[in-house]
């Protein structure tokens, strides 16, 4: 029986239209709907399923961010996590929070909490970094199974099926280990009403990065954030001759 630590990040909901700030320093987040990173939802679901199958004894959800991250943690608790740790990081520190910081926080917490397994989403849909799992594994010197689409318990540890270019790869890891969840690992559940109610009473601990001894000085500087190029409007042309003429006109043929 193992204890599982799950990282959950609060990101802009994927159904929301993203707007870049006029000064290109980032995207507009004020007054914008946020939810749990979809890949982290998959991570929580997997941890909860492990607990339901009695492969895990306890599921702890961790989120690093401002006070609103507690809503994301409540969602994880409503899905079935047992308790939550909110690492409060706000203001300018949160704006420059990077995967390395989160990895250090997760590594420290996993030791404090005596976790045997860390599951995170393979990437967050806001910055698309895809670094946290790998860095956490490196810092702890634990084996890693990234882009997991299937996790099975085997004698000494885990058998992880990984999504790789053009196919699947199966690896075996010992425990403790770090896993990152890919899209096909599972389909996360909707929190049911009784569980949403119960989640309000589940324990949530608040700590700071300082408490954990993690230095939050930025290692990467974001130079500019820009909108993708706008797709140019197409036009409908009546026949092939016009098409050929237009292509010639544009110098394509």
């Amino acid at each position: 029986m193992s204890r599982v630590l799950v990282g959950v990040k609060r990101v802009i909901d994927y159904a929301v239209k993203i707007r870049v700030k006029p000064d290109k320093s980032g995207v507009v987040t004020d007054g914008v709907k946020h939810s749990m990173n979809p890949f982290d939802e998959i991570a929580v679901e997997e941890a909860v399923r492990m607990k339901e199958k009695k492969l895990a004894s306890e599921v702890i959800a961790v989120s690093c961010g401002p006070a609103q991250s507690q809503e994301t943690l409540r969602t994880a608790l409503a899905m079935g996590a047992d308790r939550a740790i909110h690492v409060e990081i706000s203001g300018p520190e949160y704006e420059t929070l990077q995967p390395l910081h989160v990895a250090k926080i997760l590594a420290k917490l996993s030791q404090d909490e005596k976790a045997d397994l860390i599951i995170v989403g393979k990437q967050a849909i806001d910055d698309d970094s895809n670094q946290t799992a790998q860095m956490t594994a490196a810092l702890l010197d634990w084996p890693q199974g990234t882009f997991a689409s299937k996790i099975e318990k085997s004698d000494a540890g885990l058998t992880v099926t990984r999504e790789i270019d053009g196919g699947l790869e199966t690896v075996k890891t010992k425990m403790p280990a770090v896993i990152s969840a890919d899209l096909r690992l599972n389909e996360p559940r909707y929190a049911t009403l009784p569980n949403i109610m119960k989640a309000k009473k589940k324990p949530m601990k608040k700590v700071s990065a300082k408490d954990l001894g993690v230095d939050l000085a930025a290692r990467i500087k974001v130079i500019s954030v820009e909108d993708p190029p706008v797709r140019q409007a197409g036009s409908i042309i009546p026949d092939v001759d016009t098409l050929v003429a237009k292509l010639k006109e544009g110098g394509h043929i």
Binding site: D13, Y14, A15, V16, K33, S35, M36, P38, Y190, A191, T192, L193, P194, I196, M197
Partner: peptide
């Protein structure tokens, strides 16, 4: 829920889930 009119269900304010 208590009155039993709602047997079970889910509630969300996340745009994607909505």
């Amino acid at each position: 829920m208590e009155s039993g009119l709602i047997l079970d269900g889910t509630v969300t304010s996340e745009p994607a889930k909505i």
